[in-house]
Design a protein around this nucleic acid. Structure first.
Length: 450
RNA sequence: GCGCAGAUGCCCGAGCGGCCUAAGGGAGCGGCCUGCAAAGCCGUGAUUCGCGGGUUCAAAUCCCGCUCUGCGCUCCA
């Protein structure tokens, strides 16, 4: 029985599913106007590993994550670059998927584009107007939040508290009936993209996109709505507000991942410490970020630095070394260990506890091998493979050393057999200079990258 | 100002009333293995969990206050 922390309830509760054996998940995807940063990276990795775990547990997962391809930021970016919005979104989306491939994030079952859903958004807004939950002003259409039952469910603040606010926001939409009302539809300035609508051409507001796409693809009362912690309010609150205003049931559970920090500081554009995801995944083993995320809890803040990434890479080396050492072993995982794993991870997706168990299996497997207990080692090896698979963490056995390096390694083995250690060490230095380390395993040498 | 998180060894990071003299990973140190290494194994490392009070037979874990950090308060993963 999986239990998850629910942002709305503020406690860990059983993960109740609408349909037995099936999970419907909506993850708020990127607005495609800039390359993904490491914060996006954490978000997608958290939910990719979660999805993988659910599937591994035998559940059928319907995983939807949108692409927001119409938004103020896109318009602004297109203006800055002097190109069309389409050009900005096409290029950015391309980079997005490349980055996903690089960090080995599985494609969603559906990745709807906001621009493909404008008709349905117009319909929703029309119904909101008819229900008198929304109204038209000279610059757009707004939702009356005070007509929504339980507004503030996710913010955990009353409307009054929200309004007092301390931020440096501008209060736009001076014709708003109530300060907290938010835009469903924005009338365009000259040159801005727009779609026809009964109350005037324009473009949808961000919050309307996600509510329409999630309900359309997953249906009422879908299981889980997720995203980064900062989307809790206003984005998710406002999505829910629209659904509830029309009497729809929205997501049953809310799950949000914690933030990424560098040097104990928020990553932000103004501080100039925004780190590019592709850059990070290129500079380090792309799997290192996944492992680092698995070793911490998804709701905790994590520190991304050269130290933490290098640390994760070293841990990965250990896992790979074990995979290499047990490459030829054949065995079945121990059901007791798998049970233990499930019990741990089912508890609010405790991946840290799960990786803990994984590493303990590695150590026990290595010990068994050292003691010559081949069968016991094979079980541990199978456990390790299974646990890594649950988190979609790929272990690398063969790093594909080029033929000439392999030949050198073979020569070294020969030299050692002849007790020509000077020659053997010379070859080892040669390999090292070329970036390869030799590991002398039971059935011969294996090369790995330094 | 209001709300929500967090502060744990040299570093990262679990634990959330008794099994904690606090997991796991990394780094260090000592040993075993090895021709020497690499890989691996064993040992070592916080008597202590931001600070100050309190509750309890028992607190890193609960309560109150304080300090610091992050997030939100209508752009944000």
């Amino acid at each position: 029985m999986i239990r998850l922390y629910d942002t709305a309830k503020q406690e860990v509760v059983p993960f109740k599913l609408r349909d037995e054996g099936k999970v419907s998940i909506y993850v708020c995807g990127p607005t495609v106007y800039a390359p993904p940063h490491i914060g996006h990276g954490r978000m997608v990795l958290v939910f990719d590993t979660f999805r993988s775990y659910l599937e591994w547990s035998g559940l059928e997962v319907n995983f939807v994550s949108n692409i927001t391809d119409i938004d103020d930021n896109i318009i602004k970016r297109a203006d800055e670059l002097g190109v069309s919005c389409e050009e900005v979104t096409a290029t950015s989306e391309d980079i997005w998927w490349q980055a996903m491939d690089l960090i080995d994030v599985a494609r969603p079952d559906h990745s709807p584009h906001a621009t493909d859903y404008v008709d349905k958004m117009v319909e929703l807004i029309q119904r909101l107007i008819e229900a008198e939950a929304a109204y038209v002003t000279s610059d757009g259409v707004y939702l009356s939040v005070d007509k929504v039952d339980g507004y503030g469910l996710l913010a955990h603040q009353s409307l009054d508290q929200l309004l007092e606010g301390g931020g440096d926001r501008d209060i736009v939409g001076t014709e708003k009936e109530f300060t907290a009302d938010f835009a469903l539809w924005k009338f365009p300035k000259p040159g801005e993209p727009s779609w026809p609508a009964p109350w005037g051409e324009g473009r949808p507001g961000w919050h309307t996109e996600c509510v329409v796409m999630s309900l359309d693809l997953l249906g009422e009362g879908f299981d889980l709505h997720t995203g980064g912690l900062d989307l809790t309010f206003p984005h998710h609150e406002n999505e829910r507000a629209q659904a509830v205003a029309l009497g729809h049931q929205f997501a049953t559970h809310w799950m949000h991942n914690g933030f990424v920090e560098t040097d104990g500081q928020k990553m932000s554009k103004s501080l100039g410490n925004v780190q590019d995801l592709v850059g990070l995944a290129t500079q380090y083993d792309p799997r290192a970020y996944r492992l680092l995320i698995l070793q911490s809890h998804y709701r905790s803040p994590i520190e991304i630095s050269d130290v933490s990434m290098t640390n994760a890479e070293a841990a990965l080396t250990r896992l790979d070394a074990f995979a290499r050492r047990t490459a030829s072993s054949v065995g079945q995982p121990d059901p007791v260990v798998l049970d233990e794993f499930t019990t741990i991870v089912d508890n609010d997706f405790d991946t840290s506890g799960g990786t803990d168990l994984l590493f303990r299996q590695v150590r026990e497997g290595n010990s068994a091998l050292d003691a010559g207990e081949v069968e016991a080692a094979a079980v541990h090896a199978a456990n390790v493979r299974e646990l890594a698979k649950a988190f979609r963490l790929r272990l690398v056995q063969d790093q594909g050393a080029p033929a000439e390096m392999q030949a050198l390694a073979a020569q070294r083995t020969e030299a050692r057999a002849n007790k020509d250690f000077a020659r053997a060490d010379e070859i080892r230095d040669q390999l090292a200079a070329a970036g390869w380390v030799v590991e002398d395993l039971a059935d011969g040498p294996v090369l790995r990258r330094k």
